[in-house]
Design a protein around this nucleic acid. Structure first.
Length: 575
RNA sequence: CGGGGCGUGGCGCAGCCUGGUAGCGCACCUGCUUUGGGAGCAGGGUGUCGGAGGUUCAAAUCCUCUCGCCCCGACCA
């Protein structure tokens, strides 16, 4: 491609609303332009990167035995009502009506559509396993789109769905996808980690997220330094600590009421009473599928709502409004406690060993000291409810854990029969018995993968693309466009590279050297070939890798083959 | 949805408080010079100051409404 005939509108400055580096660089490098909140045009450079990611995805999905299809973006409401998600998916689902006033939505995901297809076409165990995938534009009306195409509302996604006759087959399908995803992100040249994850709105029983490691990632992840356990923070299990014997009940101290005027937060109360936050118990009132429930957490711990949700098998979990808290506890927010409450109480494991602790007094400006379980209140259900901390050890092997951040680029789920049951996707098994199909689903954010790659690979001058997903592999910079020797040499190498199928951009603009160098750095094309009068005199051109500071010279005559060697070397060396 | 902030040329911003001819840098166009790390000089074009209404002799500026965008929050009492 010739730069002068192409469309790469670069900018020196990033717009002020671009927060993260990948967003800034994608705007500056002329990759994306915003149309409206969370909705972007992919300019040619970005599209080339996206296509390269898509090609890698296709190759690996096909290798894993999946089959590409393309489903409609617009979906009828009836299907979503049938699965129950018309109600549950919430405001993220973009809904509208057609001219006949029929309700529809723009697909944010395709479990309903694919399951509908499968229930109509698959009736026998002989037709499975099967895995169908597509690469398509989705729309999710995010609460707060941000970071450019990292969290857009409209985005390109690869989604795959597997259908199996039994659990064992479903596990094989899942593992095949796990391997395919590992290969995909490896081939994209990304540093990533697969972590155990919460299943969220898609539902299902078990899942892994593929996280590109980056400081600016929206997700917090933990991993064990001793074994291969890694998880999303919202999922990470906490090993229950040793519980103390419960035999010495008689030695418990009597409850003391303490006036705590205006003192509400854990820090304030602990400070006021000169105790550690770990001696306090936070009592949080939640509305769980319409039922009010008290949740008890140690003062220095943090509740993990996802865990609460799964412990109770709930659809919705919401912190109660102030008014509700006042009705239930008889006190303003900040003074809730378990003593005397007549609603269900669930508590984190960490409370088991505690005695003589501090809680709210269910009265304005009152806390209680020396509160104890069993004597003063009963816990209906214990569970793992808190967020893991740096003091905790690995739930599998007990060794030290590390915290980090990541960008979720892929997510694989075991769905079980959630959708096949709701939509009655059944088949006849060997015994001729009607059985629900076991499903799995597997997503990759294609645009986000490109953004994540930039987030992970850049410097002060711009992007440093991993070569497998770079829009071009090589950029040629003829520095003096008025010098026929320079131009001819650049053209010669350009033609030779195109002949051997190296993706090459020739910067044939009549610009000053500095402009070309800076743009080349900004665009992040992995290999730069500089053709200048100086080099030509010695019969040489200069080659520099974007990822390195040193350059070297090669003879013009075999420049193309030297460059090709570099291209292949870079392609073969995953990060 | 709650809180905060911002809308002035393509981009980045000043001007607004204290009303009085709309400005700067980059970008863009023309010419000359320059040409291995975002050139210099000269000339030029570019705005319904987000929109509507109001106050006023006069509004980018003050007031009201509205739209859009961004940030934080929407769980930890």
């Amino acid at each position: 491609m010739r730069y002068s005939k192409y469309f790469i509108p670069t900018h020196k400055e990033a717009p002020s609303d671009a927060e993260v580096i990948s967003h800034q660089l994608m705007i500056r490098a002329g990759m994306i332009r915003k149309l409206t909140s969370g909705v972007y045009t992919y300019l040619p450079l970005c599209l080339r990167s996206i296509r390269k990611v898509e090609d890698i995805i296709r190759e690996e999905m096909n290798r894993a035995g999946a089959i590409e299809i393309l489903m409609p973006a617009v979906q009828p409401a009836e299907l979503w009502q049938e699965s129950g998600r018309w109600e549950h998916y919430g405001r993220e689902l973009l809904r509208f009506k057609d001219r006949h006033d029929r309700e529809a939505c723009f697909g944010p995901t395709h479990e309903e559509v694919i399951t509908d297809l499968i229930r109509k076409e698959i009736h026998s165990y002989k037709q499975m396993p099967i895995n169908l995938y597509q690469i398509q534009t989705k729309f999710r009306d995010e609460i707060r789109p941000r970071f450019g195409i990292m969290r857009g509302r409209e985005f390109i996604m690869k989604d795959a769905y597997s259908f199996d006759v039994d659990e064992e087959g479903a596990n094989l399908s899942y593992e095949a996808m796990y391997e395919a995803y590992t290969r995909i992100f490896d081939r994209c040249g990304l540093k990533f980690r697969a972590v155990e994850a919460d299943t969220g709105a898609i539902g299902g029983s078990y899942s892994h997220e593929f996280m590109v490691l980056a400081e600016t990632g929206e997700d917090q992840i933990i991993n064990c330094t001793g074994c291969d356990y890694a998880a999303n923070l919202e999922r990470a299990e906490v090993k229950p600590s040793e519980t103390l014997p419960e035999s010495d009940v008689q030695e418990l101290n009597p409850i003391i009421e303490v006036a705590t005027p205006g003192i509400k937060t854990v820090e304030e109360v602990a400070d006021f009473l000169s105790v550690l936050p770990s001696q306090l118990i936070k009592s949080l009132i939640f509305v769980v599928d319409g039922e009010e429930i008290a949740v008890l957490i140690r003062g220095d711990h943090e509740l993990n709502e996802a865990k609460l949700k799964s412990l109770l098998g709930a659809q919705t979990v919401e912190l109660a409004f102030e008014r509700v808290v006042e009705e239930i506890t008889g006190a303003p927010v900040g003074f809730a406690g378990p003593v005397g409450l007549n609603i269900r109480i669930v508590a984190d494991h960490a409370l088991k060993g505690m005695r003589d602790f501090v809680t709210g007094g269910n009265r304005k400006d009152l806390h209680l000291r020396n509160v104890n379980m069993k004597r003063d209140f009963e816990v209906d259900l214990f569970g793992d409810l808190r967020v893991i901390t740096s003091q905790d050890s690995c739930p599998r092997c007990g060794r030290k854990i590390e915290f980090g951040r990541g960008i979720e680029v892929g997510h694989i789920f075991k769905l079980g029969t959630k959708y096949s049951q709701a939509l009655k996707a059944v088949f006849l098994n060997h015994q001729g018995k009607e059985t629900p199909i076991i499903m799995g689903c597997y997503g990759i954010g294609v645009g986000r993968t490109v953004a994540a790659a930039i987030e992970q690979n850049h410097d002060k001058d711009g992007i440093i693309f991993p070569i497998p997903i770079a829009p071009f592999e090589v950029i040629i910079l003829p520095l003096q466009m008025h010098d026929t020797g320079v131009v001819e040499t650049a053209e010669k190498i350009y033609t030779e590279l195109l002949d051997i199928k190296v993706d090459t951009l020739l910067d044939d603009r009549d610009e000053r050297a500095g402009v070309k160098f800076n743009d080349a750095d900004l665009l992040g094309i992995p290999i730069r070939v500089t053709v200048g009068v100086k080099g030509i005199k010695g019969g040489q051109v200069e080659i520099k890798l974007r990822s390195e500071t040193e350059s070297f010279f090669v003879p013009i005559n075999n420049a193309a083959s030297s460059i090709n060697e570099k291209v292949e070397a870079l392609n073969d060396s995953p990060k």
